[in-house]
Computed example of a mutant assay.
Amino acid sequence: MRIIQMNRRSLLSAALAVPAATALLGALPARAEMDIGRASSFIEATGRELVATLNSNQPIAVRRQKVADILRQAVDVDGVGRFILGRWWRVATPAEQQEYMQLFEETLIRNLSARFGEYQGVTFSLGRSQQRTEDDALVNTVIQRPSLAPFSLDWRVGEVGGQPRVVDVIAEGTSLRLTQRSEYSAVISRNGGKVAPLLDAMRQQIAALAAREGR
């Protein structure tokens, strides 16, 4: 097992109070076969980039932006948004589709960033990898935080556009992308099949996250 050290205070820890389902990930079909070794190396390399950024002496705002950039490169953001909105994508107007993707990306990146945070003395442990299907592999990680219970994340990695990308996260046995898809669909269904109320809820969530992070 490989251990990666993180040594920063967490200015994003409050965001962890948001239900884990808000970090859901997904992807569209038609991906190429994913090799276990490549998936594991990809997650390790991504972790090392995050560690280097969090351990740097750069201003907090700069570190946050770099962490966001790393995650945008690692995650199939377009596939995430389209999968989670599901059948409601066709209901949304072009303007709503565009705004949804913008709001979704910001929500996703903020919540993923919060999972790594800027805790002092956090360790990111790379565990077992296993072939899930021909299309993707699971890479297990355990994140340990001082004075807090460690939590396990299984990163589902697929081949997207010829590159490995995170397409789902399994948190303590629960597929986050499937949970988020259900939650988003429920919001739209409760509002007469309209996407606009979901967009309002997403704006409010982003505002709350920004307030907790002090920006």
Rank of each mutant, 00 (worst) to 15 (best):
R215S: 06
L153W: 11
A39P: 12
E134A: 11
L71W: 05
E134K: 14
V91K: 10
P164I: 12
A21N: 08
S129T: 15
R48F: 00
E134W: 02
M1H: 01
A207T: 13
A137R: 10
G192L: 03
V75I: 15
N57I: 06
I206F: 01
A14E: 14
F83L: 12
L85K: 02
I188S: 09
A207Q: 14
A30I: 10
N55T: 06
Y119N: 10
V166W: 05
Y100F: 15
M6T: 06
P150C: 06
V139S: 01
Q97V: 09
V80E: 13
A14R: 15
A95H: 03
F104P: 10
V142Q: 05
G81Q: 11
L24K: 08
R31C: 04
K66G: 03
I4K: 01
G26I: 14
L126A: 08
G37Q: 14
V77S: 02
P150K: 10
A15T: 13
S175I: 07
V75L: 09
L112C: 05
A20T: 14
Q97S: 04
A211V: 10
M34E: 13
T46H: 02
E106W: 01
S147G: 06
G127L: 15
Q131I: 12
Q131L: 13
R64F: 05
R38G: 02
A196F: 00
W89A: 13
R165Q: 13
L176S: 04
L199D: 03
A211S: 11
L178P: 00
S185N: 05
R165V: 09
G37C: 08
S125N: 14
E134T: 12
V80T: 15
L198H: 04
I3A: 04
F83H: 08
N55H: 00
A149F: 07
S10L: 03
S56F: 03
P146V: 12
G26E: 11
A20F: 07
E172G: 00
W88R: 08
P19Y: 03
S182I: 04
R156P: 04
